[in-house]
């Protein structure tokens, strides 16, 4: 057995990390295709307000983060509907409010170290409760994504035509908003609030460079996310680096390599006259 897996905390980190690596890109691909890539950022920042509120009032900070994220996600959806031509503005508004609230509330938190652990996450310090929570939420998100696969695809492609086809767009959007909020808040605790949105976007960006269909892009996104997570945990353990940041940096490096390889291969095919 690999030495790293002899430690209970690392086994937990791998289990939770892989579960999150499967569900985050499932949410991420829809978020990216709806052109709301910064949504993860807005939600994860707002989750910090919930964490601070939880720590102040003595409620579990993850539950505080979940509540804050759901409120923020519904807020984004409501503003998006009011100003559809500038939908990305909804993210900026909610993120500003979330960061402002988190900043004010953090001043009242007595244990600053606990609050800071949510900024960069602590995937190697997962409690029993957090492991059960992540496992339960991961199963729910996976099932929802599989059963709403065609509906989410059509809504992301063309919301108006999806409605005409008979899809209950408002209901599906509501379910997706809740799933996003719950995923982001739980992921914020483990990989960190500042990193979760990268986890949502980078694997999808890599997959979009290689995918030859929507289905293939979804599968590649999940594979990339799992690869980044596992490699990141190994590298961070042996190089004594922060796991959250390492995972994201490996993802970004991989994306840069894919883009470079694509450029080189396009140039090669052009010179050979094959395209």
């Amino acid at each position: 057995m690999v030495a790293i897996l002899e430690y209970d905390f690392m086994r937990r980190a791998f289990l939770v990390g892989i579960l999150l690596a499967v569900i985050i890109p499932c949410i991420g691909i829809i978020v990216v295709l709806k052109r709301l890539s910064m949504m993860g950022d807005a939600l994860s920042h707002t989750s910090l307000a919930g964490v601070a509120a939880g720590l102040i009032t003595g409620i579990n900070p993850i539950l505080g983060a979940v509540a804050a994220c759901i409120a923020a996600a519904l807020g984004i959806e409501a503003i998006r509907k009011k100003i559809p031509k500038f939908s990305e503005m909804s993210i900026a508004i909610v993120m500003s409010a979330g960061v402002g609230l988190a900043g004010v509330l953090s001043g009242f938190v007595k244990n600053a170290a606990n609050f800071n652990s949510f900024l960069f996450g602590s995937i190697v310090a997962i409690s029993d409760f957090e492991m059960i929570l992540v496992t339960g939420i991961s199963c729910a998100v996976m099932l929802a994504f599989i059963f709403l696969y065609k509906e989410l695809f059509y809504i992301a492609l063309d919301e108006r035509s999806a409605r005409l086809a008979g899809i209950p767009v408002a209901v599906i959007n509501f379910i997706f908003t809740i799933l996003t909020a719950v995923t982001v808040s739980v992921a914020a605790r483990t990989v960190g609030a500042l990193i979760v949105s990268s986890m949502m976007v980078v694997p999808v960006a890599c997959a979009m460079q290689l995918g030859k269909s929507y289905k293939q892009t979804v599968i590649y996104s999940v594979w990339f996310a799992v690869f980044f997570m596992v490699t990141g945990l190994f590298v961070s353990y042996y190089a004594r680096l922060k796991p959250g940041g390492t995972i994201v940096l490996i993802g970004v490096l991989c994306l840069v390599l894919i883009l470079l390889m694509k450029k080189v291969s396009t140039r090669f095919l052009l010179t050979k006259g094959e395209i």
């Binding site: 065609k150 695809f153 059509y154 492609l157 999806a162 086809a165 008979g166 269909s213 289905k215």
Partner: peptide, 9 residues
Amino acid sequence: EIVAANLFS
């Protein structure tokens, strides 16, 4: 995939 999406009903 795009054509099949409209088969929801």
